[in-house]
Structures are given as structure tokens and as C-alpha cells.
Design a protein around this nucleic acid. Structure first.
Lengths: 354, 354
DNA sequence: ATGAAAGCGCTAACAC
DNA sequence: GTGTTAGCGCTTTCAT
């Protein structure tokens, strides 16, 4: 392959920093108009196949790459999507993110993951920043109290909520049946003989946390001699640790503990271990989400599993539909969760039996 | 607040879908030219403060938001950065990502996190996709064999490697002193009396993994009666499990195991537990990175800690400099790692003492 | 089937 | 100080 010589081409080796080729460079090189190049690039049928090949050749030769920027500017669609999560360090979210990422890429969309810390201001800041880039849509999986602000910062932006149920009634969502899951888990503990169960509840603004608490309450209320203790906090391991410390300090600790998610529950478990309590002989503990670590033999945490992949797949699918069909009816889906019983829950210790 | 009436304004309630205001709308509303509006937006000094206020008022009234898209198209800078990671589900990366995200946002940059699976094709695909959006720079923290491809897919793009040392000599990087860390960890085990140490090495293409292996080898070679077994694999927990299974199957297992990262090591630990081996009484085990889970009392894994936050801060700082100063000399930094001794490493069991 | 031309929303000369 | 204007790289009528 020998280099051709272009006599008197303007800018022959003129500068070491040559700008990337534009569509008009391709057009010139192929001897056609920019419109034709544009058609070829978008697989428009009205192009003679000879012309098409000509253009494709020029594209190759020049290593031409179309500018999504310019394209987005003129079409008004950036093919860029955002996923809002509470905290990418909570293992539930990477799993969701990877799944959604894959789906998005398969449909030609680029996904930007935003860790909001459940701070509404941060959510809105992110959203505004991305809207300036022409963001096409959002999957909202974080649980901060940002729904109203978000919805009116971007009234016309397709959005689907997942992991949390939106308050507004005309927004699409996919969630797990948190309440039912909580009921089943609570029932499991009651069946094991526990009559004093602690619930580490997470922040009161989070709808998924509240539904889980609700399910717990329902199951407990249905059992006359059962007694519950609820402690509020955050979603992270340190909140779990704090809750356990509080129960231990006050002397009258529950014989079983439910944490509102696995991340927090693992923190609680840490504190139990530090306090030399044996799990489940002295105390039982269980969580929600069934993240990878929960199922690991190291921890073996009893947990209410969400079908994270299905959550991701469906929310992406709903968003894609909203993206093409402008104003469809909101889609509302609830997925089954499943109770995974492992080694952190066992019968109530003898001395606490009635 | 009563609504004003705009008689005969064009497009009065003409459609429910009004397009967002552009800079020329603002200009018209403020009674100035677009150039002046642009100046105000960019804090250009050559604007009378009265005019400035006028414009700012119009911006507020119209809820105007400048289009980063258009801006990027004309300036050639998108203020968008990418972080390439191997696998966002490996807890090392979210920690790094959050730190870098924060730094980026503080400098007005938006960060896109890309999980490459250490697949070069995936890296390049991501990069191309983002370059079409005018990506300004990259922090490369994934360890796939993609260096050459990446570097010539984007020869002029500022890039800094972190977590891995690039082969090319004129690329900036910040890494931890993996080799020294490995030597210290190995020495710790040798001091405990271990003479047969297994190393689960990760993929052979990963430079950080190789440096850790190198450090291990150095320390082992310096001890005449010490014997090592090395098993190659991936970076994830299942590779750790596979390695342990192999050692157990072949009967002559090491008395101590080092995993090339914590994620993999935790997998190995799982298999030890399943095999009813007591840690550290029967066998010792340790890893690298010191992710949060390693330091948790549940696991309490001995680990060589990287200063992840510092890694993030510095790589961002180097990238920012490269972004402003076009062609500076490459920056090469090596950070200290520190050995965290916890409860998974202990003296060699009596029957294995010489 | 192809081309010419008008923008998309902005910045950056350059004029006044 | 402020306005005019020519693009940035593309898509999209509308002609031909």
C-alpha cells in the first residue's frame, strides 16, 4: 500500500493537528453532495448502490466518524439516557446499572449513571447538566425525595421509575412487590417463634422502604402477641450498625432483626458479630434485595430477592417505548420478589420462648 | 402572580409542546443582540452591568438553559470526561468513580462511567461512541489489553492511566506501588512461618496483577525453602473459588493464599469456608485493594490497601492539567500502599512447621 | 436518485 | 460596549 501524492492539496501536512473529517470532506472526496452522504450514513433507501459504495469508500479512507453532537443539535435527540441511582457503592445498583447499560447499548443509546446520594438538589443538578446535552430520557432508581422537583424540572422528558413507586399517578414504573416480600419474611420469622422483631427502616422519604415497613407492620399486627421495634436511619451499613448498638444499649433487644436492605443489614450483622452474638443461635437477621454478598456462603443472609435483571430489562423497555410513542399511557408493573432463606435466620432461642 | 396577556404574540398557546428558549429568544426579550447574551453567559467582562442585569432577567423569565450541545459543537470542547473501569460491580471501582465524579463536577465536567469488562473491543466501542459526542478526555482505570488500540483510536485525546501502568512511555499515570505491597504482604506470611504460599494471579494481560505477582515472586525467591503455587484466572470471585477448588483437589494445598485482588480473594475465602477449613487456623488468606468489605468485621481480610481517593484525586488533577496545557510532559506518579493485617492471616499450622 | 440551501443554538472574529 | 455575521457538522425540506 503506497501513499498517493496529492500535489498542491491545500493543507498538505500543514499542521500536525488536523481536525477530524466532516461530512463535507467525505462528500468532496466521494464527489457527491453532503445530502447524499447523510443519506448513506442513515441507510436511507433512495441511494443508488453504486453511489452508496462510493460514499462508503470515502468514509473508510478518511476514517470519518459522524458527530453525534451535530446530529443531536439538529434532530433534537441525543440518544443519551440517564440512570439515577442512590449510591453506586450500594451493590444493588451496579447490578441494575450493568443490565440497563447493556439494553441501552443494544438500542443505540448511551447510558450515563448518576449517583445522587438521595439528595434532591444533586438529582436536579445532574438532570439539568444532562438536559443541556439533550438527554432523551431517564430511568429513576434512586429513592430521594426529589420526585416533584425532577418532574417539573423536566416536564416533557420521558421517565420511568424503578425500585421505587412514584407518588404521581401518570408516571410509568416497575417495582418489586416490596410489601408482600416484607410480609413473607416477617411471617418466616414469626413461624420460627420470634415474638419481638426489630426493623431497621431506612429514611422515611423512601417509598420502597416504607412499603417494606408496611408489609412488616401488617404481618406483625396480625399476630397478637408479637411486638416490634422500629429504628429509622439511612440506607448504608453504618445505619445498620447504629441501630444494633441502640438495641444492645437499651437491654431489651429483639430476637430477630430485619434490615430494609442488604447493605444496611450487613452493617447490622457486623455489629452483632462484634458484640459476640451468635447468628442465628442468639439472634436472627435478614434483609432485602439479595445482593451477591448476601448469597455468598461467607454471609449467607436470609433476604427477600428482587429480580434485578428483570427490573432493568423492563424499565429500559418501557423507556424505549415512551421514547418512540410520545404520549402513551403510563405503564405500571409490579414484579414478584422471592424469599431466600439462608443461615442467618433460625428458631427463637429457648429462653425467649413462651 | 397574575398571568400577563400577550395579544397577538406569535404562537400564543399555539401548541402544548413549546420548544425550549434559545439564546436568540433571550436576546429578543432583553432587547440586545445574541452576542451580548453570549457574553453575559460566559462572564465576559466587556458588558455594562446594566445590560448584564437586563439579560440575566430575561434568562430567568424565560427559564433559559444554554445548550451544551451547541456550545460543544462550536468550541470543540464538550466538558465531558470518561472513566473506563473493568467492572463496576467490583467494589474497588465505585469508590474510585465517586471520588473522580466529585472532582470532575467541581471543575464543571460531567463524568461518564464505562464498564469495559476488560474487553478491548468494548473499550474501543465505548470510546468511539463518546468521541462522537466530543469527549474531552479519559481516565483509564480498567486493565484490559486495550492500550494500543485505545491510544491510536484517539491519538490526540488527553488520557491518564490509573490503577495500571501503561506500556507506552509518554502517557501519564498514577498507580500504587503494587510490587512493594506484594513483597510486604508475602513477607508477612513468610514471617508467620508459611513456606508454601499460593497466589491467585488474575489474567496475565493486567499490568497491575503482574506487578503484584512479581513482588510475590521476589519475596519468595529470597526465601530458599519457600515454595509457591500460582494459578491464573480472572478477577472475579468465581476465579478465586476455582483456584481453591483446584488446590484442594490436588491434595498438596498451600498453607497460605494470596489473591491478586479482594474481590477474587473473597471468592476464594468462600470456597475455604465451604470446605470447612478454618481461617486462619488451618489456612491463611489475604488480598489486595482493601475494599470496604475486606475491612468489615464480617470478613476481616488481611489486605494491601490502595489509597483509592488519592488515586482518584490525582488522576483527575493530571487530566485537568492536560486539558488546559495541550502538550505537557507526561506525569508519572506512584503512591504508597499499606499492609492491613486482620484476622485471616495467622501462624502456619503446627503440622506444617519444619 | 441527487443536490442546494436553510437552519439547529451557539461562539468568535470583526466592525462600529 | 454592543451588534453583525460567519460558521461548527449535521439533517431535512424542496427542487430537479
Amino acid at each position: 500500500m503506497t501513499a498517493e501524492i496529492h500535489p498542491l492539496d491545500d493543507a498538505v501536512a500543514e499542521s500536525s493537528h488536523r481536525r477530524p473529517p466532516s461530512i463535507s470532506d467525505v462528500a468532496r472526496s466521494a464527489g457527491v453532495s453532503v445530502a447524499t452522504v447523510s443519506r448513506v450514513l442513515r441507510d436511507h433507501p433512495d441511494v443508488r448502490s453504486a453511489t452508496r459504495r462510493l460514499v462508503q469508500q470515502a468514509v473508510q479512507d478518511l476514517h470519518y466518524r459522524p458527530s453525534s453532537l451535530a446530529r443531536a443539535l439538529v434532530t433534537g435527540r441525543s440518544r443519551m439516557l440517564a440512570l439515577l441511582v442512590s449510591d453506586i457503592a450500594n451493590p444493588f445498583y451496579p447490578q441494575l446499572a450493568r443490565c440497563i447499560e447493556r439494553e441501552a447499548a443494544a438500542s443505540g443509546y448511551t447510558l450515563v449513571i448518576c449517583s445522587t446520594d438521595d439528595d434532591p438538589a444533586e438529582s436536579v443538578r445532574y438532570l439539568n447538566r444532562l438536559m443541556a446535552y439533550g438527554l432523551d430520557g431517564i430511568i429513576h432508581a434512586s429513592v430521594g425525595e426529589d420526585e416533584a422537583e425532577l418532574l417539573d424540572a423536566a416536564p416533557d422528558l420521558p421517565i420511568v421509575f424503578t425500585n421505587r413507586r412514584p407518588a404521581s399517578s401518570d408516571v410509568s414504573f416497575v417495582v418489586s412487590d416490596h410489601r408482600r416480600g416484607a410480609r413473607r419474611l416477617t411471617k418466616h420469622l414469626l413461624d420460627l417463634g420470634h415474638r419481638h422483631i426489630g426493623f431497621i427502616a431506612g429514611p422515611s422519604h423512601a417509598s420502597n422502604a416504607n412499603e417494606r415497613l408496611l408489609g412488616f407492620d401488617q404481618a406483625m399486627k396480625a399476630t397478637p402477641d408479637a411486638r416490634s421495634s422500629v429504628i429509622r436511619g439511612g440506607f448504608d451499613p453504618s445505619s445498620g450498625r447504629a441501630a444494633v448498638r441502640e438495641w444492645l444499649a437499651q437491654g431489651d433487644r429483639p430476637t430477630a432483626i430485619i434490615g430494609v436492605n442488604d447493605s444496611l443489614t450487613i452493617g447490622a450483622l457486623e455489629s452483632l458479630i462484634e458484640a459476640r452474638l451468635r447468628v442465628p443461635e442468639d439472634i436472627s437477621i435478614a434483609g432485602f434485595d439479595d445482593v451477591w454478598l448476601a448469597s455468598s456462603p461467607i454471609v449467607g443472609l436470609t433476604s427477600v430477592a428482587q429480580d434485578i435483571d428483570e427490573l432493568g430489562r423492563r424499565s429500559m423497555q418501557i423507556l424505549l417505548e415512551a421514547l418512540t410513542a410520545p404520549r402513551g399511557r403510563p405503564v405500571r408493573q409490579v414484579l414478584r420478589s422471592s424469599l431466600q432463606i439462608r443461615k442467618t435466620t433460625g428458631p427463637v432461642p429457648p429462653q425467649h420462648r413462651k
